[in-house]
């Protein structure tokens, strides 16, 4: 295995599946990059758990207003149509099924759709934030992640070993090597890097990859 997508390219690929006018929550950190890659002519409305809908990009350094931040506590900006609301309304949007897409990071995703992304075990100070709410609220819950851990271990597994964020909640995974759907407790391979063979991909995947339809080429621009 020689090549893989950068985080920005994974975010670019995930952004291609977001429809015009979709209401979208992006997890803290890497998933926030998805907002940069909306296809031309499409405009999603971004939600952040601390109570802002339809916000703009980060301000330039020095122009931050620290009353105007996202869930990652980074400064954001207003744009026409921005709305503020309190936390109970914010999570009514989440749990009430009003968001079209939530995109989160992952430590592990199981073929059952189980997600582990909040705790690496008892040595850590545990911190969950809004992840457990998001995975049960959005109409579509997608994960973006490297295909393997830094040590090369599969992140796509039969059963998660780390504490769960949610059970049976993830429906699509965008990795550095492939796009994989979860249907009826199985990983269904949809796209993979053109240079890769299914066997090579299977070797770095911790559960069986199923092929039900022709597998597309995963091709991303340099971004």
């Amino acid at each position: 295995m020689t090549d893989k997508l950068t985080n920005a390219q994974i975010a670019w690929r995930a952004a291609q599946d977001i429809a015009d006018g979709a209401y979208v929550n992006l997890g803290i950190g890497f998933p926030e990059m998805v907002a940069r890659f909306q296809p031309p002519g499409r405009q999603a409305v971004f939600h952040t758990e601390n109570g802002v809908l339809g916000f703009g990009e980060a301000p330039t350094a020095g122009d931050e207003d620290w009353d105007l931040i996202n869930a990652g506590k980074k400064a954001i900006t207003l744009k026409p149509g921005t709305a503020f609301f309190h936390h109970a309304d914010s999570f009514a949007m989440v749990r009430g099924g009003h968001l079209d897409v939530a995109i989160l990071g992952a430590y592990e995703v199981a073929e059952t759709g189980d997600l582990a992304n909040w705790s690496t075990g008892p040595k850590d100070v545990p911190a969950v934030g809004g992840a457990m709410d998001l995975v049960h609220g959005a109409k579509r819950v997608a994960v973006i992640t490297d295909h393997v851990t830094r040590k090369g271990q599969p992140k796509l597994v039969e059963r998660c070993t780390l504490p769960l964020t949610g059970v049976g909640c993830v429906t699509r995974i965008y990795t550095s090597l492939a796009v994989i759907d979860i249907e009826a407790g199985r990983f269904i391979l949809r796209e993979m890097l053109p240079a890769l063979s299914i066997d090579a991909l299977q070797n770095v995947t911790g559960a069986k990859l199923h092929v039900t339809d022709p597998v597309g080429d995963l091709i991303c621009p340099e971004v």
């Binding site: 758990e49 309190h86 936390h87 999570f91 749990r95 100070v125």
Partner: peptide, 22 residues
């Protein structure tokens, strides 16, 4: 927080954010 937590000097009840709000 981390120092007091790891020293067992502060208790933590961790609550999902939306659950905390509700």
């Amino acid at each position: 927080f981390t120092e007091r937590y790891q020293a067992g000097e502060i208790a933590l009840e961790l609550v999902p954010q939306g659950t905390l709000a509700e």
